[in-house]
């Protein structure tokens, strides 16, 4: 589920000609942004984003702190005379409505201009990141389940419609998708083809083989090596971090989840059901 917690504190800096100039704008802005605040510097030269109902801290270097007759209840006014950028950042921090939940800067973003609603991502992702909306349109539903640095779902997308904006390279990072990219993606993607079958089946098969060997030979190390070999191959084929593959659930759980995802995808694709 997407994080929905306390809204960002908006810091509105009055930089109009009626105020004294902020001595070190750049350092002040940087300090505030590094704390995660949204900042509006309003000098009156051009429009800024409109007022809303978010908690807002209005700062300025006024000779006398102005009285705002119709000041909204969610606004706080503070004169920042004599404060350094670090002190201004501390002041802003003290007005934060509540501590924010941590978030992961790694989650998929669907390019709906490219997405054909084929449900391959939903079928593929073992971690339940994807779901469908009321109109059976694929959507990112549980982005917190996404495994950091794992772009596997964008590899399986035949249309290169899944982006990870913090990814290092295009088109996964949102760069334009070229015909060459599509071809390349197809080659990389088809992890299943590279392994001669469905990726999860492959894992299951390997695991079963390893189990069988284990039962015959009582050689746990050999079984483990076999599984690791398989995972390394997968990692190389799909640019999937080894730790993601190593943390995959048990083969039984994989099978259960894969069936569940496939059923969800199938149901979403069936008209009128």
């Amino acid at each position: 589920m997407a994080l929905r917690d306390t809204p960002t504190l908006r810091i509105l800096i009055d930089a109009s000609p009626e105020t004294e100039p902020l001595p070190d704008r750049y350092r002040t802005l940087t300090a505030l942004l590094e704390q995660g605040h949204a900042v509006t510097l309003a000098s009156g030269t051009q429009p800024v984003s409109p007022a809303d109902t978010q908690p807002t801290l209005l700062l300025g270097l006024w000779k006398d702190t102005p009285e705002f007759e119709n000041r909204p209840a969610h606004w706080t006014v503070q004169n920042i005379h004599g404060r350094s950028p670090a002190q201004i950042a501390d002041l802003a921090e003290s007005h934060r409505p509540a501590p924010r939940n941590p978030w992961k800067p790694w989650f998929p973003v669907i390019d709906y201009d490219r997405c054909t609603n084929c449900m391959q991502c939903l079928s593929f992702c073992l971690f339940g990141v994807y779901g469908v909306d009321g109109e059976r349109r694929i959507q990112v539903q549980n982005q917190d389940n996404c495994k950091t640095n794992c772009p596997a779902c964008s590899r399986v997308c035949p249309e290169a419609a899944i982006m990870f904006p913090k990814y290092k390279a295009g088109p996964i990072n949102g760069d334009t998708v070229s015909a060459v990219d599509l071809q390349k993606e197809k080659m990389k993607v088809d992890i299943s083809a590279l392994l001669g079958g469905d990726v999860y089946d492959m894992l299951r098969l390997r695991s079963e083989k390893a189990k069988s060997r284990f039962s015959k030979e009582r050689d746990a190390d050999k079984a483990l090596t076999e599984r690791q070999k398989c995972l390394v191959k997968l990692a190389e084929a799909g640019d999937i971090p080894a730790e993601v593959l190593m943390s995959l659930p048990s083969p039984e759980e994989i099978a259960r989840r894969a069936e569940e995802a496939a059923a969800k995808a199938k149901a979403a694709l069936q008209p009128g059901v």
Binding site: A2, L3, R4, D5, P7, T8, R10, A15, R25, Y26, L29, L33, E34, Q35, G36, H37, A38, V39, T40, L41, A42, S43, G44, T45, Q46, P47, V48, S49, D52, T53, Q54, R100, W103, K104, P105, F107, V109, Q143, P165, K166
Partner: peptide, 25 residues
């Protein structure tokens, strides 16, 4: 350059974070 220009502007720490949180901003 934006700070030096004297222009008005909005700045956010990270658009990805705001999107992840579905922040009203």
């Amino acid at each position: 350059a934006l700070c030096d220009s004297g222009a008005s502007f909005d700045a956010v720490a990270d658009l990805c974070e705001l999107a992840a949180r579905k922040d009203p901003s």
